[in-house]
Structure formats: structure tokens, C-alpha cells
């Protein structure tokens, strides 16, 4: 319990929601597979959580994750009606600087590299999974029938990098608790031919997730 505990929370956790507007044409304009209808919850809203550490005066470093989910039942494939789950995770490693404009109001400035990950899972009929996955992947274009055999894990994954910049406004409810509103943009270098399944490269859905405005609203709690 030394001088280091005086002032802002050194370690804080936060939980909230994020908003953005990507164009997921690989899903929405797909002619072969009927994906879940796009809506606010599966397109524009993200779950947002993070943890920050104040490593310098007026500066925090941390981890912040924005995740967009989509779930659909009875997606009609070649042989089966599959359960489909899609997540886009924007994992940010922000450096945030801030100052208190008023005793209860803070303005903050965030720069963050992004390690993004797209993940598509499907529960298909075991005996037909290779045909079903090929049918599914063919619907995005690229080389036909890229999957030769499937293992136990039915998931296709893509990673990309990007960066984000945000300005934020934080209102302190108490010295430990605050509400934080941020707005800014993120740029992701996503390529739809960089997906992989069972270590085999495949073509995934076309998505426009570069140059996107992004907003977040979260509740912050200072642990110490």
C-alpha cells in the first residue's frame, strides 16, 4: 500500500457493447447458402470487454476485445441442415492516454494494433461433413472442393492485422466506477482467400471491414 496506489485505478476491467457497420457480402449476397438474415444484433453490435493497466502517468496499456456473433440453425447444405456459428473478433492491444478535464470527466485517446480473427463453425451430419463443407466453402468462390478430409474439429479460421484509433469520454460515477464512451475508426487488412480449415487454405466470405467507424459504450471498474 504505497504511494503507487494514489490516484487513478492502476488496474481496471471493463465490459460493454460496441457498434460498427461492416459489409458482409459473402454472407448476405450468397446464392448457394441461405445464411441468417442480417440484423442489428448479428451485424452492428459487438460484445466488448477489456483489461487495462496504468503503466505511466496518464497512460494505460491493455487488451480489448470486440466480438461480433452470428448463429443460425437449419442452414441447408448439400446433405444436412447445419447449425452455423460465426464470430469476428477484433482483439486490440491499446495504448491509451488520458487527462481529467473535470474532476469526474476524463478525455482519453486510444491507438491500438488489432489482431483480428474470423471463425466459422458448423455442426453437420458426421458422414457427410466433407461434402457439406465443400458445398459451404464453394459458395464463397475460389477453388472448388478444397477440403479433402475433415477431422474432429469443424471450424474454419482466418487471421488478419489492423489498427484502430479512438477518442473517448469517461464519466466517473465513483473513484472506482466509470462509464466510458468511445468513437473512432478501425482499419483491417482482411483478405477472403486467407482462410484455413484443417490446415488447408480455402477461400472464405467476402467482407468489407476496412475503414470502419466504430463506437463503444462500456462500464469500467477499477480493481486497485
Amino acid at each position: 500500500m504505497g504511494e503507487s496506489l494514489v490516484g487513478q485505478p492502476k488496474i481496471s476491467v471493463d465490459l460493454g457493447i460496441g457498434f460498427y457497420e461492416p459489409t458482409l457480402s459473402g454472407f448476405d449476397d450468397n446464392q448457394s447458402v441461405q445464411f441468417p438474415t442480417k440484423g442489428f444484433f448479428n451485424r452492428n453490435m459487438m460484445i466488448n470487454w477489456g483489461i487495462y493497466y496504468e503503466f505511466f502517468n496518464n497512460a494505460r496499456i491493455g487488451y480489448n476485445s470486440f466480438t461480433s456473433y452470428d448463429i443460425g440453425k437449419n442452414i441447408l447444405l448439400l446433405n444436412s441442415e447445419a447449425i452455423f456459428r460465426r464470430s469476428l473478433i477484433y482483439r486490440m492491444f491499446p495504448i491509451e492516454t488520458y487527462f481529467r478535464w473535470r474532476p469526474k470527466i476524463e478525455l482519453n485517446f486510444t491507438l491500438a494494433p488489432i489482431w483480428g480473427r474470423g471463425r466459422i463453425e458448423m455442426d453437420t451430419t458426421p458422414g457427410d461433413k466433407t461434402e457439406d463443407w465443400n458445398f459451404f466453402i464453394n459458395s464463397f468462390g475460389g477453388n472448388p472442393d478444397p477440403v479433402e478430409d475433415m477431422g474432429a474439429t469443424d471450424v474454419m479460421i482466418s487471421d488478419w492485422i489492423g489498427y484502430s484509433s479512438m477518442l473517448g469520454f469517461r464519466y466517473y460515477i465513483s473513484s472506482r466506477m466509470a462509464v466510458d464512451l468511445k468513437g473512432g475508426f478501425m482499419n483491417n487488412s482482411y483478405k477472403n482467400d486467407k482462410w484455413r480449415i484443417q490446415r488447408q487454405p480455402v477461400t472464405g466470405p467476402t467482407m468489407k471491414i476496412d475503414k470502419l467507424p466504430i463506437f463503444s459504450l462500456k462500464f469500467v471498474y477499477g480493481i486497485r
Binding site: V6, G7, Q8, F56, N57, N58, A59, I95, T97, Y98, F99, R100, W101, R102, P103, E106, F109, L111, Y172, S175
Partner: peptide
């Protein structure tokens, strides 16, 4: 809290 954080320190203003 206010006294500690009302002015930016060192490189943090450049970052902002």
C-alpha cells in the same frame, strides 16, 4: 485523482 490526472505528462500529450 483530479490533481494527478488533470495535466498530461511527458510523451502522453504527443500520443493524444
Amino acid at each position: 485523482d483530479y490533481k494527478k490526472a488533470r495535466t498530461m505528462a511527458s510523451w502522453t500529450s504527443t500520443h493524444a
